[in-house]
Design a protein around this nucleic acid. Structure first.
Lengths: 208, 208
DNA sequence: TAGATTGTTAATCGATTAACAATC
DNA sequence: TAGATTGTTAATCGATTAACAATC
């Protein structure tokens, strides 16, 4: 029995983009697509799309391309979003509120299940059908709900301490909105959302 | 006179991360750092940091490393964020509100200067010292303020049309929060913020 | 000085692309 | 069938890393 080489992380990172485009095609009631068409929409070469998908199996048919619905389901399965993941949000300021209200998670495999904030003035406030809980309940609630994913929306100065507590409680995937690189132990994944960093990336190319 | 090869975009994308770390070091009143220390904090090899910086000049000293403040200023200059860029925000729902309130832009070279929304119920509402304007005023206001950067925080279904209008008005850098890949003409830059895509990237690695 | 660290070169590694046989 | 498109191989391209002379 051979060893299956691990799939490049950069390929995994493109799958959600493919999934997003396929979701739109489903809305458009498009039944079939091709690597060429998908690449066209995404600004990616058709060869790359075929190569990426080939890591996971054979999903298309020569001559006709890919059945949109089928490929969509397959990628959902590969990414393990053919189920619902519960998430915790820590920090319920403006950004945390926006995250808690966001309607877009449900369709893509996620649900905000619990909110925490360190500010006693916010604790007890209701958002949708959730009540903001104090930090003291963080570990217990995360364990009770079996939560593995958390979003950090606290100020930069508190983000590392919050990450530490979340990891301690059993979280292994963090989406960090604070503008700071987190130190985490092996086995814990972190993704970053830093709008100012994206903006700075673009200003390099702007002529003043 | 030779042709200066263009610097890889992936290198440009790392500069804001270096800048962010240097900003924190300034807060910590750290005077000198090294490629090794910086790399340690960021989970990047020291060789990569030195190589990245070498595209732009020589900023360090053998034996002592980099003066934090000096390197910070140099990178700010390279990224053209040693000034203030005005930005437009289109779509002032929960997310647009959070963006408009966000205090973190100022220190990193940006200011939200104008807000637009298609909803007549929102038009006229004040957020901080800004008033939400109707879409009809988009082109005129963007031109009047000389705005080159816009953030799109409208539903996916409207994002492409909004992008088209912004580009038409002279915007050449878009930060898109809508979960859709935008089609833009050459010369226009787009960066994407899609939390669900980041989450899906991580669930791949989670064991159910 | 001795130790540390830079900037740079060359080697390595990995990702993307081009091309095409297979086949629907 | 003829045309289209896949999955895959090999070639190309580009990015990362290791190593080290230079030097503070």
């Amino acid at each position: 029995m051979g060893i299956r080489a691990s799939i490049p992380d950069i390929v995994i990172g493109r799958l959600p983009i493919y999934l997003r485009a396929l979701g739109r095609m489903i809305q458009e009631e498009k039944e079939y697509t091709s690597s060429h068409e998908l690449g066209e929409r995404l600004g990616i070469s058709s060869a790359q799309i075929r190569k990426d998908l080939s890591h996971f199996g054979e999903f298309g048919k020569q001559g006709t391309g890919y059945n949109v619905q089928y490929l969509y389901e397959q990628i959902r399965h590969i990414l393990k979003v053919d189920r619902e993941w519960l998430m915790a949000v820590v920090g319920v300021g403006d950004l945390g509120h926006a995250i808690a209200h966001y309607r877009g998670f449900q369709a893509r495999g996620f649900r905000v299940a619990v909110l925490f904030d360190a500010d006693p003035k916010l604790v007890g406030e209701r958002i949708g059908d959730l009540t903001i809980l104090p930090m003291e309940q963080l570990a217990a609630e995360i364990q009770r709900l079996g939560i593995r994913i958390a979003m950090i929306a606290v100020p930069a100065a508190e983000a590392q301490a919050v990450a530490d507590r979340l990891i301690e409680a059993g979280v292994t995937a963090l989406l960090n909105y604070a503008p700071i690189t987190l130190a985490v132990p092996p086995g814990v994944r972190v993704q970053y959302i830093d709008p100012a960093a994206h903006l700075q990336h673009m200003t390099y190319y702007l002529t003043p």
